[in-house]
Nucleic acid binder design. Structure first.
Length: 288
DNA sequence: CTTCAAACCTGTGGGC
DNA sequence: TGCCCACAGGTTTGAA
């Protein structure tokens, strides 16, 4: 599933292949794909017709296209979303949800999404902390790859939480871009158990786990960013990074790369958490 | 105000 | 062979 490094790869592809072009027509093939665009399908397609795309931007797992009329087309890939740049005569994908044709007659932009957790919407741009962002994601924090990311602030916010450390890492208002995979990897690198109460984190531990999250995402971006030159801008969660570089996520029963102890899998928020029983010992039962 | 959990989706794969 | 169900998980929404 696309997380920050994959979304950044898509953003770079959009910047290269779509920025500077004028949308000739927009078509929505599945209304759920634009459910967050409250005014509806006709408003969405109508307002995009004839508009020039200025740039492709990203914050956390959200990305958006700056439009010449001053608004933005916001996209979230959800679990299974893809933004593809395809020649117009390419057959429609099975889960094609929306398509955008361009005035230059070149390759079109397609939104494909099997599970429809993702979606597109038009949004007004607002200034938050000196940066223009779509109003509907004004609450999303800067991600660790943002040049203006405030690490000291994130450490303070993390320690001010009253919850488990992994829940806090997944809180997009504290730091954005961290999903289940990178949360587990960051916790493994910093030798913290996912259920460690945030109020018991030392400043050093909080700083370490946030740094680890930034590092693992930066490494994933390098590993997954090899297809920037391809016209076919694809995100399918199958980047080489996942096959060879994960230390915890999905490795249940396999030996910890540090100590050899089999990795465990715990139920966590209707999904899974992977960790090393020895390197990441369970915290003492908390007393509320 | 903060924290928590259900709901939203559909394809895959294991078990029987 | 084929059916059923668990599982994958980011975000929103409403409850506590």
């Amino acid at each position: 599933m696309p997380e920050l490094p994959e979304v950044e790869t898509v953003r770079a592809g959009l910047e290269r292949h779509v920025a500077g072009r004028v949308i000739a027509s927009a078509e929505v093939l599945h209304p759920r794909a634009i459910r967050r665009h409250v005014p509806g399908v006709e408003d969405f397609t109508g307002r995009l017709c004839g508009v020039k795309i200025e740039a492709a931007r990203r914050r956390g797992k959200y990305l958006w296209l700056d439009l010449a009329d001053g608004e933005a087309m916001l996209a979230h890939l959800g679990m299974s979303g893809q933004l593809l740049v395809q020649p117009e005569d390419t057959p429609a994908e099975k889960h094609l949800r929306a398509r955008f044709r361009f005035a230059d007659g070149g390759p079109e932009l397609r939104f494909v999404d099997q599970r429809t957790f993702g979606g597109l919407a038009l949004a007004e741009l607002v200034e938050v902390d000196g940066t223009a962002v779509p109003n509907t994601i004004a609450h999303i924090a800067r991600d660790p790859m943002d040049p203006l990311f405030d690490a000291a602030l994130a450490v303070r916010l993390l320690r001010a939480k009253r919850t488990e450390v992994k829940r806090a890492l997944l809180d997009q208002t504290l730091v954005s871009g961290v999903g289940n995979i990178y949360a587990d990897e960051a916790l493994w690198r910093s030798r913290l158990h996912w259920a460690r109460p945030t109020e018991r984190l030392t400043a050093k531990q909080a700083q370490a786990v946030l740094s680890a999250a930034a590092e693992v995402m930066a490494e994933a971006l390098v590993a997954g960013g090899t297809s920037f030159d391809a016209l076919y801008v694809n995100v399918n969660g199958q980047s080489g990074y996942f096959d060879r570089s994960l230390d915890a996520y999905g490795r249940v029963g396999e030996p910890c790369r540090r100590c050899g102890t089999p990795i465990r899998r715990d139920p966590f928020m209707n999904r899974s958490s992977f960790s090393c029983p020895r390197c990441q010992p369970k915290p003492r039962t908390r007393t509320r």
